[in-house]
């Protein structure tokens, strides 16, 4: 049985089409990444899959239950970790957990046991009786994830799980998600952190302007744009003036500078390496490091969503 089956989903808000006939499925036990720029339709999709919004047309089936008609049965199988750490600041960590368990009909003994376990796992047990308003951003995020797991879900919706977090919270969350995946939990992940999706996901879908632009395993997606290979290098002395000169080297399509490193995009890495060595020799520079890189998932994302790079960042093309 598929964990999620989305078929011809359309969502319109007046004249605006937020989702334009999207179809995809997520297998049980799969970690599925859902990527897209802001306003692409990610949140609308999640709101429909969790039964908060209704589609204009099309269906979404969660473990065999139609989310529109068997809403409660479908929701019972899910855990939802929203992008905002939507915890109750005026309740303690323990009260937040118990409230979440009560909403998901977890029995009294089980909810106390599960709450204890999860608070320990997420390093919050010692603070269980403290009100959440005194918690750091990372602690609130960990509590949000713990609340999403209190009903032992078969399907976990993770919306930007590690965005802007401290290293400790980041590591705890990633470890827990890895363990959940090994236990067979299906994960539906939306993230702006493309590297996170690359590392964690079995497959990713890239959504843009309400359409699914691509859907495949990260490595397969990268193969589709082999022309976007790159060379990352650094010299013993680097300056911004060198960027323009490197960009003018033969076979270099584009170049960026990030910190002390230059990244040159090309279809022919070996020829560019020769050109770079000649450039270094001519300008009396020493090459400190040089690495050939295949296309990243970010490159695929940028190619498919029509974004463009400015410096290190990607920006939408209007």
């Amino acid at each position: 049985m598929q964990a999620i089956e989305v078929s011809h989903l359309i969502k319109k808000f007046g004249p605006l089409t937020a989702l334009n006939d999207i179809t995809f499925s997520v297998g049980e036990g799969e970690t599925f990444g859902f990527l897209g720029p802001n306003g692409a339709g990610k949140t609308t999709t999640i709101r429909i899959l969790t039964g908060i919004s209704r589609p204009t047309s099309g269906t979404a089936i969660i473990f065999g239950n139609d989310i529109e008609h068997d809403t409660i049965a479908a929701r019972q199988t899910m855990g939802i970790v929203s992008e905002n750490s939507n915890v109750y600041d005026d309740l303690t960590a323990w009260q937040n957990m118990i409230f979440s368990a009560e909403l998901y009909h977890v029995g009294r003994k089980e909810r106390e046991k599960k709450t204890n376990e999860l608070l320990m796992t997420f390093g919050l047990h010692e603070r269980r009786n403290d009100k959440v308003h005194g918690f750091s951003k990372g602690m609130k995020r960990r509590l949000t994830l713990a609340m999403g797991l209190v009903n032992s879900p078969r399907l976990l919706f993770l919306d930007e799980p590690t965005s802007g977090l401290d290293v400790q919270s980041n590591l705890i969350i990633r470890d827990v998600v890895t363990e959940l995946v090994s236990e067979g939990v299906t994960v539906f992940l939306t993230t702006h952190n493309i590297e996170e999706a690359n590392v964690m996901c079995d497959r990713v879908a890239i959504i843009n302007k309400g359409n699914i632009a691509a859907i495949d395993a990260p490595e397969s997606l990268k193969k589709t744009i082999q022309s976007v290979q790159s060379i990352e290098l650094s010299f013993n002395h680097s300056s911004i003036d060198q960027l323009e000169e490197l960009r003018r080297l033969p076979m270099v399509n584009d170049a960026h500078k990030a910190g002390d490193k230059f990244k040159l995009y090309t279809e022919d890495p070996s020829e560019v390496i020769d050109a770079v060595m000649a450039y270094a020799h001519t300008h009396n520079l020493k090459v400190i490091s040089i690495t050939t890189l295949g296309p990243s998932l970010e490159d695929v994302f940028i190619r498919l969503t029509g974004l463009r790079r400015t410096g290190g960042a990607a920006h939408a093309i209007d």
Binding site: I52, I72, R75, I80, S82, N86, V87, L103, Y104, H105
Partner: peptide, 14 residues
């Protein structure tokens, strides 16, 4: 405003 209402709207209750 703090998005906790979404928690109630997405819970398995009518």
């Amino acid at each position: 405003r703090v998005k906790t209402f979404d928690r109630l709207l997405s819970a398995p209750i009518s």
